[in-house]
Amino acid sequence: MGAIELKNVTFAYPNGFIANENLTLSINSGERVAIVGQNGAGKTTAVKLMNGLNKPTKGNVFINGMNTKDKTTAQISSYVGYVFQNPDDQIFNSNVKKEIEYMLRYLKLDEKEIERRVGRAVELTGIQDFLHMNPYDVPYSTRKFISIAAILAIETPYIILDEPTAGQDMSGIKALTTLMNVLQDEGKSVITITHDMEFVSDNFSRVVAMANKQIIADGTARKIFWNHDVVKQAKIKKPQIGELASDLGLSEDIILRKELVDLLINKY
């Protein structure tokens, strides 16, 4: 089984600012992990260590046993795909199909394989109607799925999604959930940075909380959201259902709608 492993990793920028300090974390193949914490906690810097955009100042990062210090970012991109928070920071081609094909042509894949991978990525993201359009002529929410499709086409075993629900309506969030289910069924790992705690509680069994450049907790969503010290230190909020349960004076560690409904039915 493969894994992304950060071992005692510290990252400092050239000006000396330390963004991550002594991170130790292992994410196995097929896991779905949410990374949460306030802005400035070090989340984005940490995932950029995973895909080689950042190289550790101290410690080591391993991808399936491969030390990233020995590899270029381009080499690591075949293992770890990173979807930027803002698709406009990622997209640069004149139409959607060219955007999805770009890395595949860079890798010199044959036309049949390019066609297969593009078709699969388009199917998973539901962007069939936009293939021949300029990406900047489609809605922002769809543009995010275009950037996801471009990474899916590379078929990396690890995929990082940075704030995927930002700008999405309920339909888009449902599509993201379906997509993550498919990827996990295929044995791929999905690592997500998000401030959307409802999305976390509904979709992630494992949550990593960060604060002050460090990992402060790693466990189930229930364990994280009902640890008041972690919630306070990471400056996150419980899911709204959890807040409602607290307001109603219920002691059970509720984070899901169905749990609250079932409890209320049984109680009253």
Rank of each mutant, 00 (worst) to 15 (best):
Q90Y: 06
A149E: 12
L131I: 00
E113S: 14
I224W: 03
L179G: 02
N134Q: 04
V231E: 02
R222K: 12
K235V: 01
K267S: 15
F17D: 15
Q128S: 13
L256M: 13
T72G: 14
L248F: 13
T192D: 07
K235D: 10
P135Y: 09
R143F: 05
E111H: 02
I114G: 03
K98V: 03
I254W: 07
D202A: 12
A245T: 11
L107N: 15
I215V: 09
F84T: 13
N95D: 15
Y102P: 00
K55R: 14
I100S: 08
D88S: 09
G126V: 04
K43I: 00
F145M: 09
G40K: 00
Y140E: 07
L256G: 07
Y136L: 15
F92T: 02
A211D: 02
Q128K: 12
V83Q: 02
S147F: 02
I27N: 10
I160G: 04
A217D: 12
A234H: 08
Y140C: 04
I191F: 13
K174V: 04
I151P: 09
D229K: 14
K43M: 06
Y140F: 13
N134T: 02
I100W: 03
F62A: 08
D202L: 14
D185R: 11
V138W: 03
G219Q: 01
R105M: 11
F199W: 07
L250K: 03
L260A: 05
